[in-house]
């Protein structure tokens, strides 16, 4: 009763609001809000100097650089190839297209540990692909990049694909009639329409890559200062019973993730507005 009287904007004849919202709020609070607040409260047991000391040691900074750098590079590669894959799937016909389309979601369905050991085996020095490459991939920072490309792959494809399907072909016909060649039509007409979706996909892939753990630790080699990602550092600190130190790094990652979430939501709102305008 309390919930419906205070929160409802409009009266509804449908029942169940109090029960449904009450349960949902209780569930979210118990499972997410309270435990998450534990992380922030734990860092308050540190003073500012201790917090800075825990989050800015050379080893931690090296892990930030690797995590951010590899995530950014992987998200960029996924943006480029995600656009190509989405384009090919929407515009062209070829044998096996449906199968390819379904398999794009594989990184969502394949457990990260499975992906991790498979990628490590392939890109190792004697692996299927690794043996043809002149440089080492597995057990180097490059391996981190490969794993992050794998897990971020579906995001750009799946955000761009529906937008590309909805692109009004008459715009392209109009551009062609006005003398634009195919590249001009793509870069000036199609690309601006899919751009917001492309950015959203990039941000989603980037955010996912920042927190990824399972697929990376197998292929990275996990050498401190060289190929150690930030989530692994949290686990290392936990295993040394340095709870406050682990939590301080976790809070840095959480704040980054929230900021990214904000960016993603803003991008999506912007995209909706643009789409509405077209």
């Amino acid at each position: 009763m309390l919930l419906s009287r205070t929160l409802l904007k409009r009266h509804s004849v449908l029942p169940g609001f109090d029960l449904a919202l009450g349960f949902a709020l209780l569930y979210v609070s118990l499972l997410v809000l309270i435990p998450l607040s534990a992380a922030f409260l734990k860092t308050f047991t540190l003073n500012w100097e201790q917090f800075l000391a825990a989050t800015t040691t050379p080893r931690v900074v090296a892990s930030y650089k690797l995590t951010f750098g590899a995530s950014l590079a992987a998200a960029l590669l996924n943006t480029l190839f995600g656009l190509i894959v989405a384009w090919v799937l929407v515009r062209y016909r070829f044998t096996g297209k449906r199968l390819v389309d379904a398999l794009v979601d594989l990184p969502f369905a394949l457990p990260t540990a499975v992906a991790g050991i498979a990628l490590t085996a392939i890109y190792a020095e004697n692996g299927w692909i690794g043996r043809w490459l002149p440089f080492k991939v597995s057990f180097t920072p490059l391996g981190v990049f490969v794993a992050l490309v794998f897990i971020g792959l579906p995001f750009v494809v799946r955000t761009v694909q529906p937008v590309l399907e909805d692109v009004n072909r008459e715009f392209e016909e109009a551009a062609a009639t006005l003398g634009a060649n195919r590249w001009q039509t793509f870069s000036r007409v199609v690309f601006p329409i899919v751009m917001p979706a492309l950015l959203t996909g990039f941000a989603l892939a980037f955010a996912r890559a920042l927190g990824e753990y399972g697929s990376v630790i197998f292929i990275a080699g996990n050498m401190p200062m060289v190929s150690e990602i930030t989530p692994l550092l949290i686990i290392t600190k936990l295993e040394q019973y340095d709870y406050a130190g682990a939590t301080a790094i976790a809070v840095v990652m959480l704040v980054t993730a929230f900021l990214l979430l904000l960016v993603i939501n803003t991008l999506q709102a912007w995209a909706r507005k643009r789409q509405g305008g077209v």
């Binding site: 205070t6 929160l7 409802l8 904007k9 409009r10 509804s12 449908l14 609001f17 919202l21 949902a24 709020l25 979210v28 997410v32 809000l33 435990p35 998450l36 534990a38 992380a39 955010a207 996912r208 920042l210 927190g211 990824e212 753990y213 399972g214 989530p231 692994l232 949290i234 686990i235 936990l238 682990a246 939590t247 976790a250 990652m253 959480l254 993730a257 929230f258 990214l260 979430l261 939501n265």
Partner: peptide, 28 residues
């Protein structure tokens, strides 16, 4: 099915686990 205050907040909270690193999910 209902229009209520704080709906967007609840929607954001539901999305939260997607942007939190699994390691942090265990840590909390």
């Amino acid at each position: 099915k209902f229009d209520f205050r704080g709906k967007n907040l609840l929607l954001t909270l539901i999305d939260l686990p997607f942007s939190v690193s699994p390691v942090i999910a265990g840590l909390i």
